[in-house]
Design a protein around this nucleic acid. Structure first.
Length: 519
RNA sequence: GCCCCCAUCGUCUAGUGGCCUAGGACAUAGCCCUCUCAAGGCUAAGACAGGGGUUCGAGUCCCCUUGGGGGUACCA
């Protein structure tokens, strides 16, 4: 049984790089009919774990990446919170100590630091002198009598090599001398990552450790612990980093200000910000930006589009295939085809996937996604009336591909504002209504025809307008542009006839008259 | 400093010694379509980091350099 895991720390938000790592774990487990475990790395953050964890769990659930065991759902190999597993870690420390593979050390931090700096000055590699190592209870007592506090360190071999196979990097060989006597238990009795990780993975029966490249250098020391504990080694696969837009630096949530200088990143960010503002979301760039999953959820992206983009970040099937449903992803994913070079995150390309997925979504589903945005912007009642739903569906249908994320429906807010509250795009008004000498007159004449029109559907309106154009001996654009600005307030939008049909006769006539008044 | 990993268009990538005058996608530019804006169609521009080898032949194998990243914590 294949078992993989992802172990986020409760930081309050779900990072896109983490999702990519989790996705590969999830995919690998599903592909092999295995299980995916969500463990929580909360060793140092005891406070507000619940609040800081919720957005992460919500994010994964929204993306549809469910876990078989772990936080919230429990399971037979818990607890799944590291903060609740201290006894397990201490037991492992004791085993290592008993086997002589770890030792009590009473050096003060500054004493070790001094040794390290001396080694660096001599341009050599650092190796702790083990000067304050205590091998017997008597030695311990003596050092403690001096007022020293003990930590437990790994007694790493100083000759020979550690060999292991990595599914992505191939065969790895690490000289043991290059490894330090890493601390595994602090003076306060708490344990460190390398130890906790190994213990948890074993207790939770993890078969494949699939994680980011930053852990490649941690692997040898973890293998030392694994072997020392006499437990079986898991398989390893170290994924390349997800890098910043346009660079090879590791993607970080702390550098948003810098990413915003990237035009592609900024475009996606601005698009999301505009929507957030319209629905009254208070946001700050630190917590609401295209590096955080919640951003995409709030702006109305599709989870499938995000997953499809993410699976391609470091993995590919061949030279052509780019689109994968969840089922196909699971079927076709393999570690063998994971790239070894870092991949930089490109929100523009993610957006392109979003567009494609949105285009294929049935109108009913798009409408269902769009309604909450109009409700939150207070443009329609909440819950919406059947009539409002119908109108929104017609707008969504008419808007077609223009609605790229669900929040884009807010571009058509002018259908919901009162006629006398309609805001006009000044530049467009000037260009299409005030400036052309014939515009106002044409609008007046056309409004007259409109008010006597018997049918008000798009096709009839088109006919009506064509007849008008012929009668007046003008070109269609002369009246079309003026009409669009007069009825919607804007120079851009979907088909004019559809717009007018949606507005209905009375509102069209009223808006034209109001516009003439302002001209 | 020391140890380790990585290197194909701006970006994601295909490429596992001859099929590569390097293919696809996003982005970019131009044209077409057109009531605006999208969408769509067509076209263009755009890469093997550099230097040495090995080989009949190298993007593909080896070495060096350069660049990027990670580790070297009583962080994860």
């Amino acid at each position: 049984m294949v078992r993989t895991r992802f172990a986020p720390s409760p930081t309050g938000y779900l990072h896109i790089g983490g999702v990519r790592t989790a996705l590969f774990n999830w995919l690998f487990a599903k592909k092999h009919g295995g299980q995916f475990i969500l463990r929580i790395d909360d060793t140092d953050a005891e406070r507000n774990v619940k609040e800081a964890l919720q957005p992460i769990l919500d994010g994964f659930r929204w993306l549809g990446m469910t876990w078989d065991e772990g936080a919230d759902v429990g399971g037979p190999h818990g607890p799944y919170y590291q903060s609740q597993r201290l006894d397990r870690y201490q037991a492992a420390v004791k085993t290592l100590l008993d086997k002589g593979l770890a030792y009590w050390d009473y050096a003060k931090p500054e004493e070790v630091k001094a040794e390290r700096e001396a080694a660096e000055k001599a341009k050599g590699s650092f190796l702790y002198s083990r000067k304050w190592m205590a091998e017997t209870p008597a030695q311990r007592a003596a050092l403690e009598a001096e007022g020293r506090k003990g930590v437990v360190r790994l007694k790493m071999p100083r000759e020979g090599t550690c060999r292991f196979h990595d599914h992505i990097r191939g065969d790895m060989v690490v000289e043991w001398v290059t490894e330090q006597d890493h601390v595994i238990q602090r003076t306060d009795g708490s344990c460190l990552y390398n130890l906790a990780n190994v213990v948890d993975d074993h207790d939770m029966k993890i078969t494949h450790v699939i994680r980011a490249e930053e852990h490649l250098s941690n692997t040898a020391r973890q293998i030392f612990i694994v072997d020392g504990l006499g437990i079986p080694r898991p398989e390893y696969a170290h994924l390349p980093f997800v890098a910043e837009p346009g660079s090879k630096n590791k993607l970080s949530k702390r550098k948003i200000a810098q990413y915003l200088k990237n035009p592609d990143f900024k475009k996606v960010y601005d698009h999301g910000q505009a929507i957030a503002q319209k629905i009254g979301l208070t946001t700050s760039a630190d917590t609401f930006n295209p590096v955080i999953v919640d951003f995409f959820r709030e702006v109305g992206y599709l989870p499938d589009a995000i997953l499809n983009y993410l699976v391609l970040l470091g993995w590919s099937l061949d030279d052509k295939t780019e689109e994968f449903t969840r089922e196909k992803m699971i079927e076709l994913f393999s570690l063998e085809r994971v790239n070894s070079a870092p991949a930089s995150f490109d929100p523009k390309k993610l957006f392109a996937f979003q567009e494609r997925y949105m285009q294929r979504l049935p109108v009913e589903e798009k409408t269902a996604m769009a309604l909450p945005y109009l409700e939150r912007a207070k443009l329609i009642a909440s819950p919406p009336s059947a009539e409002a739903k119908q109108t929104v569906m017609e707008i969504v249908r008419a808007a077609g591909d223009r609605i790229k994320t669900a929040g884009d429906v807010l571009d058509y807010a002018d259908f919901f504002v009162a006629d006398d509250q309609l805001a006009y795009d000044e530049a467009a008004f000037e260009k299409r209504i005030r400036k052309p000498p014939e515009a106002v007159g044409l609008l007046r004449k056309f409004a007259e025809r409109l008010s006597t029109a018997s049918a008000f559907d798009a096709a009839s309106l088109e006919k009506l307008l064509q007849d008008f154009v012929q009668a007046e001996k003008i070109e269609p654009p002369q009246i079309i542009h003026a009409l669009r600005v007069a009825t919607t307030g804007k120079a851009i939008g979907f088909g004019l006839y559809e717009s007018m049909a949606l507005l209905g006769k009375e509102r069209c006539v009223a808006r034209i008259s109001l516009a003439r008044g302002k001209a």
